[in-house]
Design a binder for these strands. Sequence first.
DNA 1: AGCAATACTTTACGCCATAAGGAGATAGTG
DNA 2: CACTATCTCCTTATGGCGTAAAGTATTGCT
Lengths: 271, 271
Amino acid sequence: MVVFAGQGDPRRSMALLWRAGAPADDPRPRPGRRPGLSVDAIVGAAVGIADAQGMAALSMRAVGERLGTTAMALYTYVPGKSELLDLMYDQVLAELAERYPDGAGWRPAVTAWAEDGLACYLRHPWVLQVSQARPVLGPGEYRMLEALLGALRGTGLSGERLRRITGTLVNYVRGAAGAVAETRQAAAATGVSDEEWWFSRASRLAEVAPDFTDRYPLLGALEQDRAASYRPDRPGAPGDDVPYPEREARATFAAGLAVLLDGIEAAAAGG
Amino acid sequence: MVVFAGQGDPRRSMALLWRAGAPADDPRPRPGRRPGLSVDAIVGAAVGIADAQGMAALSMRAVGERLGTTAMALYTYVPGKSELLDLMYDQVLAELAERYPDGAGWRPAVTAWAEDGLACYLRHPWVLQVSQARPVLGPGEYRMLEALLGALRGTGLSGERLRRITGTLVNYVRGAAGAVAETRQAAAATGVSDEEWWFSRASRLAEVAPDFTDRYPLLGALEQDRAASYRPDRPGAPGDDVPYPEREARATFAAGLAVLLDGIEAAAAGG
DNA sequence: AGCAATACTTTACGCCATAAGGAGATAGTG
DNA sequence: CACTATCTCCTTATGGCGTAAAGTATTGCT
């Protein structure tokens, strides 16, 4: 099943994201029943559901239930589900560090930023679906960008070049996170371990497309090489707790990042 | 609104993707009413709806209606909506070229591959939501990968290094496409032109977060630089028909791709 | 003609987001 | 105290969704 985002009034949505005009700004006692919930509590409950049971299980009813109320009670705090998704996205990004010290140079700092971003996306894979649906422009997102700019300061880049490179890094981390998340989703969907699913892939393809290696010779060769290089029980190698397909995706992430950083280094040096 | 994919029996889904066991494989006359539809017709109608009205408008009822039948008629050809989404995704990727001639070198070939991929994602932006939800493993996806491997042949890379680099390029194009798609979505959601939306962003933020430049000094400086470099009516520059925010996102795509290709070139030369 | 297989329709169920309106709580004001 | 405005939260209802179940119509084989 697939979820996609409609959209509400962007003005209202932005005010919520930045918690502007919240009652806490003016805490004089006001008439009416005291609020039993809060935006933060709702967003927290929603993130909890999405993390634990996936986006498909996230309904206004479910969020209400988790908070001991009904779905309609949420509408006092949040205009609709679409805005709630924006808030969830932005709250998750706020988990990331505010700055990455570049005492050891910008390269480790940027690498740490990218790895934290990947880990965050993987803790909350549903985020990839929200963010690619439309821009959110909340404080969490800007915080993440600011942290990246801080890490990149050592490069001496500025202006257009810096803009392009930050954008590229953001794009790359998101794309790579999608690839890693897919390796998990595949297994989760079938109830089979990641590793089993991955290795049954080849036989599935052989059943259904017996001419695979004829149609895709280069891919076939590459796959053969991959299978040959697989060492299931390398003893105590770092990351052995991670199942193989994800280990592969993570290695790709790291390799691609290194290539990008090489390119950035050249750009920084070349003026 | 957000759409997300649940999942069906992967075996059935793969068979459909590869059109294995289709009645066309054994065209002997069989009892029963003649089929009035086909998988291809259904997928085509569904892609048409998603392209024109977005993922939110894609319902089994809508697809049936477009084909002059009911929603339930589709279930003869397709097990459910989830599998239909997989088929849509794979059909869209099949639009891409099968090979990219590298007569002028591998670099233009890979660049053409990446640009075609970006364009394809932008013709069908809903694809990004499907693909990041879970792996599909259809012929279209493999065809795209095979084309990339063909374009990369001139690098002389092989084995693990080649695997990592193809993965990185795929990740990058997908991530960048998400960023470009967002610039469009933002405008579409509000009914305002891309350009207007983009330039109202700053004032929106100022309303809602007056302390923006204090909280995000580096970002604020970068944004100021961007605004200063904006020349709305450069005469006849290539791509002037594209609205500004998208032009910016495309420029980021091109710059990031160039950095990646530099890195690949170094890897190819370095052995 | 009868049978079995296939395509398609109708109906119905249980979800979903959310509009509308009402009930209960809380404050300020006489 | 009552009165009223305001706010929270509930109940109910609407129109959509995916799809299960069961029925009908069409076709070819015997």
